[in-house]
Computed example of a mutant assay.
Amino acid sequence: MDGEINKSMFIFKNVIGKGAFGYVWRVEKKPSRFPFAVKVMSKAKVFNMRSVDTVINEMKLLSQLKHPFIVNMNYAFQEKENLYLVSDFMVGGDLRYHLTLRQRRFSERQAQFIIACVILGLEYLHNNGILHRDVRPENILIDGKGYCKLADFGLARIWQPLNSSDTSGAPGYAAPEVLNRQNHGTEVDYFAVGIIAHELMLGKRPYPGNDRQTYKENVMKIQAELKKADTPESWNHEASDFINKCILRKPTSRLGLNGPNEVKSHVWFKDFDWQALLARKLNSPFIPSIKRKNFDRKNFILKPEEQESTLQIKMNQELLMQPSIQALFDGYKYDIDEEKRKELEREENEKKKRNKLK
């Protein structure tokens, strides 16, 4: 249908990210030129990596979620070869970029603000029964005012008591119970929060390891703990205590076991104005310069082993000609404008019903 959201409604400007299935573009929607970010995913790659459920799950979850501390979806649509997920454009880039390239360590005030933003995003998800399960600096995006939002819901799931088979999290941030394929809950997200806070404080993670096995061995070897001597002079030891309680290997002892209020009530956040943060009334102590492109172009260059051969391209084209393959992506569609129209219609109908009863 002509009125349905499609690729021609956007001006594709430049690549700002790379994912497992394709690239993320900065785009502008016609005719307003309002900026968005579009994740373009190759259907063939999604199918070949057995990730159809992952991308469908992400779209369905995001269609039910709206919050100032998550990166919200605005549109989703598809063509024969690709899926398109259109979300809020975050001009400040991701936290990983600023950790590694721009500013290896952060001040305590900056770190506290960043972590508080993440906690509010997690509070919303957890109160809706959702585990993010992939909290890491790459999935924390920063807007033009320095507010951080959680992104990438591909591994997010509605919590189920028997979920030991669900693998999640990246090396460096995954909780021990996930690494050991045990049932897990919201505590896995707070473990990752502790790891990130450690990284913001000291410029490194408490448990090294870039591959899953090495990381797991280091996590299981010894309980990491920050001593008073480890805390930078410009930081309060309450920050170290917060980190230590988040990165406890035993989930039943970990901060956050009893919900987000337990995390928000930690002494490190004593006198912190959570309501003002939620209302976006606080001035962020870390605001990335919007005059610079807050991403590293080197990350978007395909390595030789990532480039598809002529044979692979032909096989993918033949794959996507099969109706059964295309049917796997049925329903991959979302239009926030259409949802708003439906909501207005519902409100109007409810209003008419109330007037009839008077």
Rank of each mutant, 00 (worst) to 15 (best):
M1I: 09
E4Q: 14
I5W: 03
K7E: 11
N14P: 00
R26D: 02
E28I: 07
K30F: 12
R33W: 11
F36V: 08
A37Y: 06
V38M: 08
N57E: 07
K60L: 05
L62Y: 01
Q64P: 00
P68Q: 03
V71F: 01
A76C: 03
E79P: 00
Y84V: 00
M90W: 10
V91L: 07
G93K: 08
R104N: 13
Q110H: 06
A116W: 09
V118I: 15
V118M: 13
L120N: 05
G121S: 10
E123N: 10
Y124D: 02
N128C: 03
E138G: 06
L141H: 00
K145P: 00
G146C: 11
C148K: 04
D152I: 07
G154D: 03
G154M: 01
R157V: 14
W159P: 00
L162C: 07
P176N: 09
L179M: 12
Q182N: 05
H184A: 08
A192W: 10
V193P: 03
E199Y: 11
L200H: 10
M201R: 04
R205K: 15
G209N: 10
G209R: 12
A229F: 01
T231H: 01
W235I: 04
S240H: 12
T252N: 12
L257C: 04
K264R: 13
F269H: 09
K270D: 13
F272E: 05
L282F: 08
P285N: 04
P288F: 04
I301G: 00
E305T: 14
E306G: 09
E306H: 09
S309V: 13
N316Q: 13
E318G: 10
P323G: 07
A327D: 11
A327T: 03
E338S: 02
R341H: 12
E345R: 15
K352A: 14
